[in-house]
Design a protein around this nucleic acid. Structure first.
Length: 288
DNA sequence: AATACGGGGAG
DNA sequence: CTCCCAGTATT
C-alpha cells in the first residue's frame, strides 16, 4: 500500500486544476454509454488520438448501438475499420457485441471476460461509464504516476497500485482523463515539456531523462504485417478477390500463406476461388 | 517474459 | 529509418 502523503495530495490538486484549463475535449468524453466508451477504447489501443477521432464518428454513425453492431456482418465492420490497423480489434469488438446480448456489462470482471478487452480496457470502460473509482493504467498513466512519484516510468502493476491510492472517489473519470492528457501533451515519452508541467514541483523525475530503456522494434519493412495489411486493405476496397488478383496487386511470395493465416483468424473467408471479408454475400470476386 | 499484431506521424 | 502510440492474446 502506497502512502505518498503530502506529495501526492499536492500532485492531485494541481493536476485536476490543470485539466480544467488544458484538458482535451474529446468526443468519447461526452457520453457515459458503455458501448460508445468501449468503441473509443478499442480504437485507442496502440493508436493515437488524432487518428481515432474521425474514425470514431464514422463508426458510430454506421453502428450507433451495441445491437446494430452485433447485427452487422463482420465484413461490414472490417470495412469501417479499414485503415485503423489491427483488424482483429474489430473482429473481437464484433464478437464482444454479440456475446453481450444487447447489454454491455460495466463491471471490470465481466468486461475482462470479453474478447479484445484486457485489464486496461476493462478498467477504463468501467470507470468512464459509471464514474466508479476503478484503478487502471495505460502507458500514459504509467509514465505520469511513475515519474512524479517514483522518479521513473512505473510498471503497470506499480501504476495501478499508486492509482488505487490516489483516485478521487467522486471524480475518478476526470482524474484518469487528466493523467492521460498530461501524459499525451506534456509528460511525453521522449522530450517532456517540464517547463509547462503543472506538477513539476512535486515531481521526482524533474530534470532527469526519465525514459525507460527501449527494446529494439522488429523490422517492419519486411514483416508479415505489411503484407497482411495490404491483403485486408484490398479486400475492404473491392469486397472480394481471387488469389491471382491479390498476388498481382501485392507481388509477395507470402500472399497465399498469409491469406490462409488470416482465414484461420477469422479475418477473411475463402470459398472456392473467392476470397472476401467474412459474412459478405453476393459480391463476386473481382479480377484485376 | 517475449512476441506478433497495422498504420501513420514525429524526430 | 527507428520509436511511439488510451493494449491484447498467445506461447
Amino acid at each position: 500500500m502506497y502512502t505518498f502523503g503530502i506529495r501526492a495530495r499536492g500532485f492531485r490538486a494541481r493536476l485536476l486544476r490543470w485539466y480544467g484549463r488544458h484538458g482535451r475535449a474529446l468526443p468519447w468524453r461526452r457520453t457515459r454509454d458503455p458501448y460508445r466508451i468501449l468503441v473509443s477504447e478499442v480504437m485507442l489501443q496502440q493508436t493515437q488520438v488524432a487518428r481515432v477521432v474521425p474514425a470514431y464518428g464514422r463508426f458510430l454513425r454506421r453502428f450507433p448501438t451495441l445491437r446494430a453492431l452485433a447485427r452487422a456482418p463482420l465484413g461490414h465492420v472490417l470495412v469501417q475499420w479499414s485503415g485503423l490497423g489491427y483488424p482483429r480489434r474489430a473482429r473481437d469488438l464484433h464478437r464482444a457485441a454479440r456475446l453481450a446480448r444487447g447489454r454491455l456489462p460495466t463491471d471490470v470482471a465481466a468486461l475482462d471476460e470479453l474478447p479484445g478487452i484486457g485489464t486496461y480496457t476493462a478498467g477504463a470502460v468501467a470507470c468512464f461509464s459509471t464514474g466508479a473509482p476503478v484503478a487502471f493504467a495505460d502507458t500514459n498513466i504509467r509514465r505520469v504516476l511513475g515519474r512524479v512519484l517514483l522518479g521513473r516510468t512505473a510498471t503497470e502493476r506499480e501504476a495501478v497500485e499508486i492509482d488505487a491510492a490516489l483516485v478521487p472517489r467522486g471524480d475518478a473519470a476526470r482524474w484518469h482523463h487528466a493523467l492521460m492528457d498530461l501524459g499525451a501533451t506534456v509528460c511525453v515519452t521522449r522530450a517532456p515539456r517540464c517547463d509547462a508541467c503543472p506538477v513539476f514541483e512535486p515531481c521526482l523525475a524533474k530534470g532527469t531523462d526519465a525514459s525507460p530503456a527501449t527494446r529494439r522494434q522488429a523490422a517492419f519493412a519486411t514483416s508479415d504485417r505489411r503484407v497482411r495489411g495490404a491483403i485486408m486493405r484490398i479486400l475492404a476496397e473491392r469486397r472480394a478477390a481471387t488469389l491471382p488478383t491479390l498476388r498481382n496487386a501485392i507481388a509477395d511470395h507470402r500472399v497465399a500463406r498469409l491469406v490462409a493465416q488470416l482465414s484461420e483468424e477469422g479475418l477473411l473467408s475463402v470459398r472456392g476461388e473467392r476470397i472476401a471479408l467474412p459474412g459478405l454475400r453476393r459480391a463476386r470476386a473481382s479480377r484485376s
